[in-house]
Nucleic acid binder design. Structure first.
Lengths: 229, 229
DNA sequence: CGAGCGATTGAAAAGACTCAACCACCGTGG
DNA sequence: CCACGGTGGTTGAGTCTTTTCAATCGCTCG
């Protein structure tokens, strides 16, 4: 469990680092990173950055989860991705040279380090492994989003929800899924009421169990079947 | 108009180059590129690559249009992007090290150059301007796809079609839009019949005019209004 | 001239959304 | 300690968009 307050993180001992784009850093690189980062505590529902603002650096999640979303016309959120520990958030707009088209907000209490834009770009320029990692990451996400678009266009809400639950099960790594129904609906791309009705169906089919707002996955394979995969 | 046969393209005189990621190449770089590329003619509806295959290089469009798409369960295509002259296609999977998740097929007769994987990666490794251009491109597309996802999730088919027509008007640069109704439906993310009915509505509202399969945009601003932008 | 594909139309059915009301839980202030 | 207010969750009913299925049309190509 997360400590309910600020915690100083040292890159050399950061548990999230090995899974991150910095995973390959050697000792010197790690201490350089350590010197250039600041460490911050975020409360639940606190924004890291909002749409339209200019990127000032990147965020490296040490602990906690962050939603990445855009807003449609009426301000309705569409969640594109949920980032967890080890993920680096906010670097995409730095390369495009444009303002953020997406926003990022914490879903729970988080410890997140910040690396200044210039420092980060220096690392990218001088470290080929990091650079290749970033390009690989960008490319993979591009492919993921193509699949996301196809799912949105061709699958029913029921199928998309089944798929989303299986995906969230991976993101929550054994912990129970803990999102508001509204966030979940904004991830699946549906109305909150529809989402609730479908969750009940899934409960009736013994695919999931709900514990207040938390969702336990009982039959992941069943969900993936239902999702048509 | 495009010549109905193979045409040899020289990078130094290629009209599409200035708009491409190679736009910044100096004389030496351009002739290096020229030596490493082959030039090919494609008929209409000919694949450049298919899902699941491993990338062997990149395709640089000299003339013509290419659809980039994924397939859903029943094999139904979802068009993610339509690439035109000057665009480089197929490099995303090269960085991810995975097989293509998307496929690319010509929409009309095309002249397209091919650059071998190793040669291309060499250029990327040694040319910082090219590399930054690619990273910018990848990042921009990532943002575009976030918007695409949001549109799919939150807009009605009518709104999406209006938006798609305005977008296609830019892609076809003054020429009339020339796609099968099925391709257009697969771009908008709807059934062919629905698309046809909506096109008729738009015709009745004097937003567009149809000439056989070709579509002429009469009121682009009206379309964008309708799309809710 | 006939086959076949793409375009179009009609009618019925289904999926999803909206709106409205109500419930349940929780922290706060009196 | 308890009533209050607010947020998030749930349910019901009616409506509307969109899909599906079926049939027809029109044009091009061999």
């Amino acid at each position: 469990m997360l400590e309910k307050s600020h915690k100083h993180v040292t890159c050399a001992t950061c548990g999230a680092k090995k899974d991150s784009l910095f995973g390959s850093f050697c000792g010197a690189e790690t201490s350089n990173l350590d010197e250039h980062k600041t460490c911050n505590y975020y409360k639940k529902n606190q924004p890291l950055f909002i749409e339209g603002s200019l990127p000032r650096g990147v965020f490296c999640i040490n602990e906690g989860k962050v939603k990445i979303f855009t807003r449609g016309e009426e301000g309705k959120e569409q969640i594109i991705h949920i980032a967890k520990q080890g993920e680096i958030v906010g670097f995409r707009a730095m390369f495009s040279g444009e303002a953020y088209k997406v926003a990022a907000t914490t879903l729970e209490e988080c410890n997140i380090c910040f690396i200044n834009k210039t420092d980060f770009l220096d690392m990218v320029d001088t470290n080929q492994v990091l650079r290749n990692g970033i390009m690989r990451e960008l490319s993979k996400e591009l492919a993921d989003r193509a699949t996301f678009i196809t799912n949105m266009a061709q699958k029913s809400v029921r199928e998309r929800l089944a798929f989303a639950l299986a995906m969230l099960d991976d993101i929550y790594e054994g912990e129970m899924i803990n999102l508001t129904r509204e966030d979940m609906a904004n991830f699946v791309g549906t109305a909150t009421e529809t989402l609730i009705r479908l969750l009940k169906d899934f409960k009736d089919d013994n695919l999931i169990e709900t514990h207040a707002r938390k969702i336990e996955i009982l039959d992941k394979k069943g969900l993936l079947d239902l999702a048509g995969l």
